[in-house]
């Protein structure tokens, strides 16, 4: 999952730095992720993992770092398994 997220971030994130150089916990907004790019990232992740972010997870926090994205996606996948 980490690799897929990094791939998508490279493709749609528009970051001025190389994604490979970012730590999992690095603040993506500080690294230059714009709010519009975060929306594109959200849509790309939904497509890649075949999930839909519920409204309450559509916020800056969910996309603040690679590990935050991993955690959010895992939560959604887990909730789907449980359902």
């Amino acid at each position: 999952m980490n690799e897929t997220i990094r791939e998508l971030l490279t493709r749609v994130g528009g970051l001025p730095v190389a994604v490979s150089e970012l730590e999992d916990g690095a603040d993506l907004y500080a690294a230059g992720l714009s709010s519009f790019a975060s929306v594109q990232l959200m849509l790309a992740i939904e497509e890649a993992f075949d999930i839909e972010f519920p409204d309450n997870l559509l916020n800056r926090k969910s996309f603040a770092s690679i590990s935050a994205i991993e955690e959010t996606v895992s939560r959604i996948l887990k909730a789907r398994e449980a359902a």
Binding site: S35, V39, L43, F53, D55, L58, N59, R60, K61
Partner: peptide
């Protein structure tokens, strides 16, 4: 749209 929901949440959070 749904992407807008996220922009709206971001705007409010900040």
């Amino acid at each position: 749209g749904r992407a807008g929901k996220m922009l709206a949440n971001n705007q409010r959070d900040q």
